[in-house]
Design a protein around this nucleic acid. Structure first.
Lengths: 250, 250
DNA sequence: GTTCAGTCTTTTGTCTTATAAAAGACATAA
DNA sequence: TTATGTCTTTTATAAGACAAAAGACTGAAC
């Protein structure tokens, strides 16, 4: 570690970075290496301070940033924990769909199909794979309060999800990202979504019980794991009769 | 100010709040009162520390939070500045529309109509007004790279925007929120958006040059100023042939 | 035995102080 | 005129001391 970043004698150091950020990188590396599992407590601030030979305040600032990025969760008096998709609070972060009126509905994922294929040009580009690399294609329906609301087509790199089959999906009662995290060790930490209005057609129209040509909200998503690595591409058709996509501009 | 929040002798204080948050509230009050204008520098951290009789670090933590909320902007070596909508960087925050391919386009606002009316039940509810209170209704088209992409219907409380007319809008070359801020002293700091897909009809279809019944993205927005006070309700129809709504889930 | 109140330990949170880096103005020498 | 150094003002970083929150543990009261 560069412990004397301020001495400019030796190197004007284009790679300069303050102490707390170096600590952050170290913690991130431990996280990525699986030293602490999702839901687990990480060592206390003072322990980490001793381990890295810095003050508690410096460790704290590193953790502050990671908590702001939803990688860690602090609880006063208890400790700091690795964020997990099994925590229901982290759920809404990745499904911004709420009813036009009334309370939030419990959601059910209905797997329809899950197979293997070779990446076409578009999927390869989105996932940073070579064209022809093995991928998994999954289709599923999302029901909210008994109503079919979202039809998803999901593309995953085959390498990371070796034994993922339709059966595995049907067995699981967790959310997809919870499953990915607990069974395959792939943690989604960030996503980009692109929204358009399109006309319903084919399977989507049928499964969502809407007329051909009626408007649907198309949500395309790329989800990233540690190191900004894309590991999921998804195309979702949302029927927005009774639900809408909620977003806060802050 | 409650300078000894930790002494529990006097009051178990259900309204306890740490020092830095009390400072934050004070700075916020100054901001709200217009003591410093958008774009201006606020006093330095050490000046504020003297003024409030606390340490620089405590002022700093207060400002940190406000910078995270986009109320203030820090610049090392220069000072801390009141955020402003005239800063182009703050622009994308409130218009999340980007081209499917190619660079970001410069946008032009084309005012169509601007009149006064009395608030109906729905607008009154959204803006926290009494039904029948005076409001302003404005319609406009947003063009990106020469193409008509968004048709907006905007509802404002009449009281806050006294002399706002179609002419004023036509005269201005600023963004709407920049105009609101500089001319009426109303600063938008946060907004909630609800998105749906709908079928194009009437004026919207016509102005956006799309067929009746073709899909449009409907974006309903409530925008808030200081103290979480709603001061704008807006219904926007987005034609998403060549553009899409971009959102980051972080 | 069970319950309740106090006490102790461990954890994150708050606040202060000292010092570094960044930016720019200004003077001065080439 | 142009560069170069120096001084001042600003935010940024780092460390240390102490407070509040949470929970486990102890032991007395019943």
């Amino acid at each position: 570690m560069n412990r004397s970043p301020h001495s400019r004698a030796a190197a004007p150091s284009p790679t300069f970075s303050p102490l707390y950020r170096q600590i952050k990188d170290l913690i991130l590396k431990s996280l990525e290496a699986g030293e602490w599992q999702p839901g687990d407590a990480i060592p206390s601030e003072s322990e980490l301070a001793v381990r890295f030979n810095v003050s508690q305040g410096t460790v704290r600032k590193a953790i502050d940033e990671m908590a702001a990025e939803n990688l860690l969760v602090r609880r006063q008096g208890k400790g700091t924990f690795v964020a997990t998709h099994s925590d229901p609070r982290s759920f809404f972060r990745f499904l911004r769909l709420i009813p036009n009126e009334g309370e939030l509905q419990p959601s059910t994922s209905v797997p329809i199909e899950c197979g293997r294929a070779k990446a076409g040009a578009d999927v390869a580009r989105m996932l940073g794979l070579a064209p022809g690399a093995p991928i998994i294609i999954m289709r599923r329906l999302l029901e909210l309060g008994g109503e079919a609301v979202v039809f998803d087509e999901i593309y995953l790199p085959g390498e990371l999800f070796q034994d993922l089959t339709l059966d595995v999906l049907k067995q699981s009662d967790k959310s997809l990202y919870d499953l990915f995290e607990s069974r395959y060790g792939v943690r989604m930490i960030r996503a980009e979504e692109r929204l358009r209005a399109v006309a319903a057609e084919g399977v989507a129209a049928e499964l969502l019980h809407v007329d051909e040509g009626s408007p649907l909200l198309l949500v395309e998503r790329v989800a990233f794991t540690y190191g900004n690595k894309p590991v999921e591409w998804r195309r979702g058709f949302y029927a927005t009769r009774n639900f809408h996509y909620f977003n806060e501009l802050a």
